[in-house]
Design a protein around this nucleic acid. Structure first.
Lengths: 201, 201
DNA sequence: GTCTATACTCTGATAGAC
DNA sequence: GTCTATCAGAGTATAGAC
C-alpha cells in the first residue's frame, strides 16, 4: 500500500499523510481533493500517487494508524487500580487527545457519521473487543460497590461523547462561549467534577 | 430561493428537501450529488434546479429550517419551573429529537465538523443568544442553591454532547453494543440518572 | 523519483423542445 | 413544469519524458 523502504520514501510518506490528515479532517473524504493535499504537502499530484496507489489508500492509512492511538487511553485503564482514579485518568487522557489531536478526532467523526464505510470492521472487531473487556472491569467495580451502578457501555460512551464534543464541535463551542476563554481547560475541570459526582456511591 | 407558490410547487419543494436531507445527512455536502438526490426524489436533475437555484441553496434551506426545531427543546426550559424537572425535561426532549430526527442531527454535525461555512452566522447569532439567556437561568438556579454549582455553558454542552452522540455516532454505538438491544431507550434512562446525580446539591 | 501533460469520468448547471 | 441533451469545470489517475 505505502512504500516505506528507504529513508526518503519514509519521509515523503509521512509528509503526505500529514498533509492528507490536515485536508481530510477539515473537508471530509469527498470534500478533500488531491490538489489540496499536494499543495499542503508541497509535492506534485502525481508524486502523491507514486507513494499511495489512490486517494482512498491515503485515507485508509490514516484511519488505521490513528485507531491504535485512539484506543490507548482506554487500554491503560487498570483493573487493579483504584476505580475513581482509573476512570478519571481515562477521562483526562481522552481529553488530552481531543486537545492534542483534534484533526484525528474529526477524521474519525467524519467517518463514523457517514456509516464508517472504510473502518467498520475495525469498529466491530478490535474496538468492540476492547470496550467489552473494559466494560467488564467497570461492572466488577460496580459489583464490589466501589463505584455507582451504571450501564458500563453507556458510561464509556459518555466519556467519548463529552471529550470528543470539544474537538469535533470546537467551532460551535468557541462561537457560543465567545472570545477570551479557554474551552478545553474549562472542559477538563468540568468533566472531572461531572464524573466524580456520577461515580459516587 | 425556493418557489413555494402553488400547491404543486410546495409539494415538489417538500419532496426535494426530504430527498436532499436523506442524501446530505448520509454523505455530507460535498459527498452528496444532485443525481442521488434526484433519484431519491423521483425527479429529474434539471427539475431539482427549477425549484432551487443551486445545490447549495437546497443545503441552506435545510439548515435554516432545522435550526429552529433544533433550538425548541432549550427554548421550552422555563425559568419559573422546578430546576431539576426543567433540565431533565430538556434532556428528554433533546433525546427525542435524536431518536426522531437523526438525519437532521447528522446534517448539522457534518456542517459544524467542517467549520460551519454555511451556518456560522446563525451559530454566532440566534444560537449563542439563546444559550446565553438560558445559561443565565441556570446560573440563577445555582445562586439560589437549587441545583449544584457548575459552569452553565458547559452544562448545556454536556446535554448536546450526550444526546447527539446517540444520533451522530449511531453506527458505532450499535456496533459496540451488538445485536438485540435498544440503544436509544437505554440512553434515555442512563442520561436521566446521570443528570439527576450531576445536579444534586 | 519527480515532473508536465493529458486521458477520462463525474458533476453542477444550462439550453431548448414539448 | 418537466424532460432530453449537453456544456464547462473539476477531479482522479496514468503516460511518458527527464
Amino acid at each position: 500500500m505505502t512504500r516505506p523502504r528507504t529513508r526518503i520514501q519514509t519521509k515523503n510518506s509521512e509528509t503526505i499523510l500529514e498533509a492528507a490528515l490536515e485536508v481530510f479532517s477539515a473537508q471530509g473524504f469527498r470534500g478533500a481533493t488531491l490538489d489540496q493535499i499536494a499543495e499542503v504537502a508541497g509535492l506534485s499530484k502525481p508524486n502523491l500517487l507514486y507513494y499511495f496507489p489512490s486517494k482512498e489508500a491515503m485515507h485508509r492509512a490514516l484511519l488505521t494508524r490513528m485507531l491504535d492511538t485512539w484506543l490507548d487511553p482506554l487500554r491503560e485503564m487498570d483493573a487493579g487500580g483504584d476505580p475513581v482514579v482509573e476512570i478519571l485518568g481515562y477521562v483526562r487522557r481522552k481529553m488530552e487527545l481531543s486537545r492534542d489531536y483534534p484533526r484525528e478526532s474529526r477524521l474519525f467523526a467524519n467517518e463514523i457519521l457517514q456509516g464508517g464505510p472504510r473502518i467498520r470492521e475495525a469498529i466491530e472487531g478490535d474496538l468492540k473487543a476492547l470496550v467489552d473487556e473494559k466494560a467488564g472491569v467497570l461492572a466488577g467495580w460496580m459489583d464490589e460497590g466501589r463505584i455507582a451502578r451504571l450501564p458500563p457501555h453507556h458510561l464509556i460512551f459518555s466519556v467519548w461523547a463529552l471529550t470528543q464534543h470539544y474537538a469535533d464541535f470546537d467551532m460551535q463551542v468557541r462561537a457560543v462561549l465567545g472570545e477570551g476563554r479557554d474551552p478545553l481547560a474549562e472542559a477538563g475541570a468540568f468533566l472531572e467534577t461531572l464524573f466524580r459526582k456520577l461515580l459516587a456511591t
